[in-house]
Structure formats: C-alpha cells, structure tokens
Design a protein around this nucleic acid. Structure first.
Lengths: 213, 213, 213, 213
DNA sequence: AATGAATGAGGCTTCATTCAT
DNA sequence: CATGAATGAAGCCTCATTCAT
C-alpha cells in the first residue's frame, strides 16, 4: 500500500490507478464508473490506463486483487498479529469493519457494501476470473475465521466442527455487509459481530465501538 | 404470477416484460442487459417497453418489486402456510432456496446470487427507491424469520432475543446467497440452513435435499 | 440504383448510406473515412448506420457489392445490350471507363483507381469476404471479356484461346486503372483500350473520346 | 540491402526499421499497421522510429522508396545484367515475380499484391509525394519494358511502337499483381508473362517455373 | 396497443506523437 | 543513441430514449 516505495515510476502509476478505481468502483459500481472518470480522478490520461491494463475488465480484476490484499492484510492478518485469543481476534475484526462503516457514513453519507462481493456479483457472469479471485479471497477469510472457531471450540468445549463454524462466520460476515448496505446502518455490523461471538460461546463479550478521533 | 388471469391485455404485456427483465437482470446484471435485449427476449417492440415504464430504472424497480413479491409469496408465506413448527418452516424455506439453486445450476450451468440484493447493490447509489424497496422486502423476510425464532425460543428455552436471532438468520440467508454464488456451490445454502437450525436449538434436524423430478 | 423505388423507408436509407460510403471510400480509402464522416455525408445519425450494418467492415462489404453491381450493369451489361460486335462492345466499355475518368478529373481534380480493387487490397487481409466478393465480380468481368474475345477470334481468325485472351484483357483493364491513378492521366485508359483492340486484331479501330456535354 | 555494410549504427537502425515496416505495410496495409507494431516487430523503441522519421507518413515514403529500389535492382536491373535478348529478359522478370508469389503463398498462406501500388492507392490522396514516388518507379519499370519491346520490335519486325508496347507491358504487369492477389493464385503471374511474350511475338517461348530448392 | 425507424450522448479503445531521462 | 512513460485526439460502437405511423 506504500506506493512511494514501489521501484519504478510505472509501478507507482499503476498502483495509483488501481487504488483510485477501487474507490470509485466501490462507491458507484463497475458500470457506473467510466474509464474517463477513473482517468480524471487519478489525474492520468486515459491512454495511460490502457498502458497498464488490457481493458476495463482487467482493471476491475486488479481492483479485486487489491481489495483482497488490503482486506486480508489490514483486517485479518493485523487482528491476528495484535491479539491471540479467539474472542479478541474476532472482536477486532468486527470492530475494524464497523469502524470503516462509521467512517464511510460520515465521510460520504452512505454505505457501500463489500467491494469484493459487489464487483463479483456485477461481473461474475462475464469475467470468471473475477469470481475466481473473489472466491480465493473468501477462502482465505474462511481460513482465518476457522482458526478462530477452532480455538473457541477448544476453549469453550463446543460440540460443533470448527470448519462448519468457520463457514457460518464467513456467511454471517457476508450478511453483515449486505444488510448494513441495504439498511444504511453500520450497527448491522455490530449485530453480526455479537452474533458471531455468541455463536462461539463468548456470549459475555460484546463488541463496543472504540473511541475514534 | 398467473399472467393469463390479468384483466387487460396491457397488464399482461406489462407483467410479461417485468418477468422477462427479472430473469435477464438476474443472470446478467442491470447494466449487462440492454433494453434492446429485454425487448427481443420478451418478443415485444422496444417502444412498447417505454409505454409501460418511464425508463430503464423504472423497469428495474418493477423487477425488484416483482422479485420481492414472488419471494415472499412462494418461499415464506407458502412455507408458513404448509408448516407450523419453527423447524419445519425454516427447513422448508432453505429447502426451497436450495432447490432453486440446484435447478439454476442444472439449467444454466451457473448460480446467480440473490436477484434483489444484486440489483440493490448495483443501483442503490443512483436509485434510492430501489434500495428502499429491497430494504422493505428484507424487513418482511426478517419478520418471518423472527416469528420462527420466537417460536423456537419458546419451544427450546433459548436465552436470546427473538429479534436478534431473526436478524442473524436474515444475515445468514444473505450470506448463503453470496457464498453460494462465489463458490458456485448450492451446498452453501444447505450449510447456512443447517447452521440456522442449530442456532435455534434444532441441532438434530438436518435439511435434506428432497427428491426432485 | 433507383432508390426512390425501394419498398420500405429502411431499404432506402440503407441504400443511401451505401452509395454515400461507396463514394467516400473510393476517394479516400476505407481507413481514411470515419463512420462519423459517412454519417455526416449521408445526413444520417451514426447509430442509424449501425442499424443497417453490423460494423464498418460490413458496410465496406455492402459497398463492394454495390460497386460490383453498378459496374457490371452500367458498363458491361449495357455495352452488350447496345452493341453486338466485339470491337464495338470493347470500345464502348473502354469509352465508358475513360469518360468516367475524365469526369472524375474535372469534378474532383483527381483520379481514384478502381474502387473494387482498392477496397480489396486494403481489406483483403482482414476480411476474406471482401476479397471473395471482388474475385467474384472480376470473374464476371472476365466472362464478358472472354465472350468478346471469342467473337473476335472467330471474326479475325486468331490462333489464341479466347479464355487466355479474356484473362489478358481483364488484366489489362486492371492495369489501366492502376496506371491512370498513378499517373493521374485518364489517357492511360485509352492506351489500354487501344492495346486491347489491337490484341484482338482490331488494329484499325481506335477508341475516341466522345463529345461530352 | 546489405544492412551490415552501412557505415553508422544509426543508418543500420534506420534501414532495419524501413525493411520491417515495408514487410508489415505490404501484408497488412498502411492503416492496418500501428507504429507500435512496427516498433515491436523491429525490436526498437517507438521513440526511436520518430528519431529517424518525421511521422508515420514519412516512414511510408521511405518504404515506397525502399520497395522501388529493391524492385528495380533485384528484378529489372538484374534481369538485364544476366540476359541480353528481349525474351530472356522478359521471361526472367516474370519468373522472378512468379517465384516471389509462390514463396509468399507458401510462407504466409496468402498473396499480397504489389507493395508499391498498394501504398500508393491507400495514401495517394493524402500524400502526393508517395504517388509521385510510385509514378517515378513505374516510369523506370516502363523504361525497362520499353527497351525490351524495342528489341523485340527490331528482332520480330512488329509494326507497333515500342513505347506503346512498353506501356501495355507495364499495365499487364500491374494487372498481373492485382489479379494474382484477388484470385490468390500465383499462376496469374505466369498468364500475364506468357501474354506479354506473345504480345512481343515470342509466342513459342513459355515461362516455366524454375526448380526451387 | 404496438411498431419500424431514427437519434444524441456517451462508452471503450487505439492511435500517432512527444517528453524526460 | 535509445528508452519508458505519458498524452490528446480520434475511432468504432452501443446505449437509452423518442418520433411518426
């Protein structure tokens, strides 16, 4: 994510375009954003975009990969780095997602749903690679959540398979995004987070919004 | 849904256009389907579409309403009509959704996700009415699921609020669609269904695919 | 060519587009003319062009067919209708081509070569249909010229095969267009015409420019 | 044509670009080849091309000159060097052209027409210099063929002017290229060659394909 | 109630060309 | 001498929409 650190100027330009497009596609969908608009927003000539991406779909694929990398890194890996108990990790993950939604709502007055699923739904039919990529990302997510589930099963002596619990947690996370977007309410993320904790036997733990500056 | 029963020819034409568009938008997204294509598929002149709908967005709104009505009627109301116990009702709902996914996969080789959420995600930004409508539909869904949760809480003596459980069930259902679509696997619906049953304390009950003709 | 006689309005529009494009492609080559320009020249919206032609190449194909039909009809068939002796027919053909070149030069200050060969050379590689069509047209031309050759062989007792003579006449006609275009001189058409007559044993006959109004 | 012999590296680079472009323009026409493609094919940076040529048209002009020089040298001058009788010279010229067509067909599965006329037809309108250059080249060709015609007239006592015969031979050569390209048949070159010999009174001589390795 | 025909705007992509290194 | 990077203009095509019948 540290563009300035990228070796060549070209790679920096490319990364800048991807980040710009990621933001736009997230807010307005793939078809709602023209290549012209991406170029304008990135302050780059349209032809420059085509120097780095074969076509608009190729850009979308790069965006999905970018979104996936950012998500895994900043949400999951970092929660695992900071915390070690399953309840802390899970709470951290949902706290992060919730915080992002709060910020989103404040800054742009709206809530946009999961940027990976959004693109995958819109383009999945025409671009199988995009769906493959999204699937791959959520396999990773499920892996993280399954680890949490396994630790919870061990700690709390649940008699459910960690794998199934991991899958359920993943689906709940999907549902959290969808319902937050439809209702326009970040609190739906908290609902899903608390339900997830309850599911793993941490009924006492509640996700509480951190103070944000 | 029984078009032939509609009084005037105009109403039948209109309903036919909506049903055709619903199918196309579902499979290929809103922007992936041109008005020309809808006209061709419905075997209707393009100008006829504009006789019944102010613009393409208006058609999309009608499609969302249509999808909502069909879903509530054929999935939720009908499950409630046939069954009375919470576990039977829940199982029936998921069995229906699962069956629809199996059929979808067989007939078109792919799985398309929730048609209501799909349109809401794609158009939510530009057409608030559509998101409102989708929200309204899922409020009804949540109502149905909350009733089931309440009965389960009563039956099984759970110490969770039916409202929160209803919400969680709704989110799990959202997640079921998303994950089935990404993975291309109808079994994800069964996973969510069984998790839902477990959540309500019906760990013994399993949703099993009915014989289909 | 009588557009007003075409049954439907659509067919007239289509024919008008083809005729306009034929003229432009002839003067400025296929790639030298944009679809926008064709639309402007035909006083038709660009989208209207795409209502009648799948793409620009499809329009070029229609143009080649049009050019072929016009050529066969106005040059060859009509010369055969009016005259019956081989030398009269051949002279009429070349007189017509020569006259067209003179007019061209007067009206636009330049000479454009054969519109069929021009398009075939430029597009033959990417559009085999176009070359096929051009080949078909010149097969017809060769047929006409072979008939003339056969009659000449009979009349003048030449000991060459009419088929080979027909082919040579066809090649000379090709060369006449090329050399007239390169030199910017209509007289090259007369040269080829007189050489053709000589070839068939009509050394006395000379093609003379008719008085033109 | 011996690039390695060129004094400076720059001249070699330039010559290499011209030769590469000549080949591409020949096969795919001027507008069908982008500067990018020329750069790729020549394994040279695009900016390097603009170091040696003012613009793409300038490159085309260089290509026409190159084609002309190669043609005159390898086909006409060399035939005149090797042979002295008119029929041998003419036969050698057509044999060469025919052989080139056979090779072309074998190596690339297609036949491309005269590269000089092709460019002149496509660009003649926008670039008068190119047409001038092409005209100049074919004046030289006509000179060579007129010399052959003159010798034939002397030898065979024909009562036609060598100049007119030279012109006819030139036009037949043009027609040979055009008809070979349209029909995709190298044999059309032989047809024109034999017709040319017959025209000069060498009815007995036939051009026969040489054994090629 | 329905249709064939037409349109303006805009989308995606590519091109020839130049700049800075 | 050569290159990686960038750009403005233009090209082809499609879309949603309307008109006249």
């Amino acid at each position: 994510m540290d563009f300035a650190a990228l070796p060549t100027k070209g790679e920096r330009t490319r990364a800048h375009i991807v980040a710009t497009a990621a933001n736009l596609f997230w807010r307005r969908s793939f078809h709602g954003v023209s290549v012209d608009l991406v170029a304008d927003a990135a302050q780059v000539n349209k032809a420059t975009i085509y120097r780095y991406f074969a076509d608009k779909g190729d850009l979308a694929l790069a965006v999905v990969r970018f979104n996936g990398a950012v998500t895994i890194e900043t949400v999951f890996a970092s929660s695992f780095d900071i915390y070690s108990s399953p309840q802390d990790r899970l709470a951290a993950i949902f706290r992060f997602v919730y915080g992002a939604h709060e910020t989103m709502l404040e800054e742009s007055g709206d809530i946009y749903g999961c940027p990976i699923v959004g693109l995958a739904l819109e383009l999945g039919q025409d671009m199988p690679e995009i769906r493959k990529e999204a699937q791959h990302i959520f396999d990773q997510v499920e892996n993280y959540l399954t680890i949490i589930a396994r630790d919870a099963v061990d700690n709390n002596g649940l008699n459910q398979s960690p794998e199934m619990l991991g899958r359920t947690l993943t689906q709940l996370l999907h549902g959290a995004f969808a319902s937050a977007r439809l209702a326009g309410a970040p609190s739906r993320i908290l609902d899903a987070g608390n339900a997830s904790l309850a599911l793993l036997g941490f009924a006492d733990t509640q996700i509480i919004q951190q103070e944000r500056v």
